[in-house]
Structure formats: C-alpha cells, structure tokens
C-alpha cells in the first residue's frame, strides 16, 4: 500500500525540490480553487526567477500576488491579470515578463502538455496579436494557428477531497484549471480539505486519478472571496 500512499505531512515536504528558475503550473480561477497554502510555502522557500502558469495572478496580498510582491516570479503565462496593482507596477517597470494567452488556449496547452501532445491548431487568436510568429494552417476553409503545449517542473493543485492514493475530487467551480494542472507537472502536488481512506470515494466520481499525483497534503484554507455579491432576501 505504501507504494501508492501519496501523503506528506508538512508543506516543506510538499514543495521540496523547488529551486530557482523552475516552472510552476497553478490551478485556480481568480481566488477560487487556488492552492493557497502551497503558494504560501513557495513564498517561504524564497525561490526566485519562477515562471508561473496560471489563469490569473491573485490579488496584491493573496494567492500568487504574494509571490509577485516578493519578486519571486520572472514570467507569468496567464489570460487575465487585471486584479493586481503590484503586477501592473512590475509589468510597466520591465521587472516582470508576461505572456498573455487566451483562456481556452491556456487550458488546452496545459491539457495537451499533460497528455503528451506537443502542439495543436486552434482558431482562437487567428488574425490577432496572439498569432504573431505562429504557424498558420487552413483546415476545411478556416485558418488556425499552431499553439505549443505546456508542462512544468511543479504543478500545484487545490482539491476538495482525496484518498491516500491521490484520487481527487474538486468542489463546485473550484475545479477550473486544477484537473488540467494536475496532469502537467513533473511533480504534481495536491492540497485538499480532507484526506479520506482509500475506498471512501466512489471511483466513477474521481476527477483526477491518482496516477497524476505525486504528493498529497491536507490543509486549512482561508478561501478568500474576491467579489462578494448577493441578492436581497
């Protein structure tokens, strides 16, 4: 059983081996479903020069924003980075490199990376600045651009529940980029709210099969809400 037991018991162990200049793919959309404790651990390690692949870049004092603040990120590959003032400052001053990528293309780049597909053609971005320098091919009368896939040294993922084997279930829209991210890390680290015994999860309900997961840790989550919107009772 030990062979499939992915559990680690400290965040130091969860992120062990992360060094300067590595690439990290992070799950999450906005602040929803972000691996907040793994990000905090990256801050603690003080590693620098990271390339981070994530749909967004957190806010100034939470999520990936805290790595920006400490200037640990050299390059971001994201679709939207509008919620972060420090991001803006570093971008304008040239300290930070940004590769803006359409959201669906970003998701597919990560999916393809994890699935062993080096590149794919998509119509998204054809005729726009995103297409600059990329191969164009016509299929059935329509133009497509060649997009290369993405993998990373580390993938950091936030799940809801997992068993020891690293079979993961996500909760609501905290799923987002997490399952794709989980497939694309040379080392995939998943943090969850609850680790259960093998057999406790229904096999057909698993979102991320344990084969993708290298390390699993249970954490406590703040789950900060970016835009709290309600209707009147």
């Amino acid at each position: 059983m030990a062979g499939f037991d992915k559990r680690v018991y400290t965040y130091e162990a969860a992120m062990a081996g992360l060094t300067d200049g590595m690439t990290v793919i992070a799950g999450g959309f906005g602040l929803c479903g972000i691996p907040e404790n793994l990000i905090a651990q990256i801050r603690k390690t003080g590693v620098k020069g990271l390339t981070v692949v994530s749909n967004n870049c957190g806010v100034d004092d939470f999520g990936l924003g805290i790595l920006l603040k400490d200037r640990q990120i050299r390059k971001m590959i994201s679709s939207y980075v509008g919620e972060n003032a420090e991001f803006e400052r570093q971008l304008l001053s040239g300290e930070l490199e940004v590769q803006l990528t359409p959201q669906g293309t970003l998701a597919e780049k990560i999916r393809a990376g994890g699935a062993g597909i080096p590149a794919f053609f998509t119509a998204t971005g054809y005729g726009t600045p995103v297409a600059e320098g990329k191969e164009v091919r016509e299929f059935k009368g329509r133009n497509y651009i060649l997009e290369e896939s993405l993998t990373a040294d580390f993938a950091i993922v936030k799940g809801w529940k997992a068993d020891w084997y690293g079979n993961v279930i996500y909760r609501h829209t905290a799923q987002n980029f997490n399952p794709a991210a989980a497939t694309a890390g040379r080392i995939t680290v998943v943090e969850v709210e609850e680790i259960v015994e093998p057999g406790a999860l229904e096999p057909s309900q698993i979102h991320t099969p344990g084969i993708y997961v290298d390390r699993l840790i249970q954490g406590e989550f703040e789950k900060r809400i970016e835009k709290r919107t309600t209707r009147a009772a």
């Binding site: 939207y80 971008l91 669906g104 293309t105 998204t124 995103v130």
Partner: peptide
C-alpha cells in the same frame, strides 16, 4: 493603456 489580458474573449469569438 495597461493591458489586462483577453481572458476568454478570443476563444468565445473564434468558437
């Protein structure tokens, strides 16, 4: 002006 990103807009119009 500051570029914030295209989010999903390019995928939406292409698809």
């Amino acid at each position: 002006k500051l570029i914030k990103g295209m989010g999903g807009a390019m995928d939406l119009v292409a698809g």
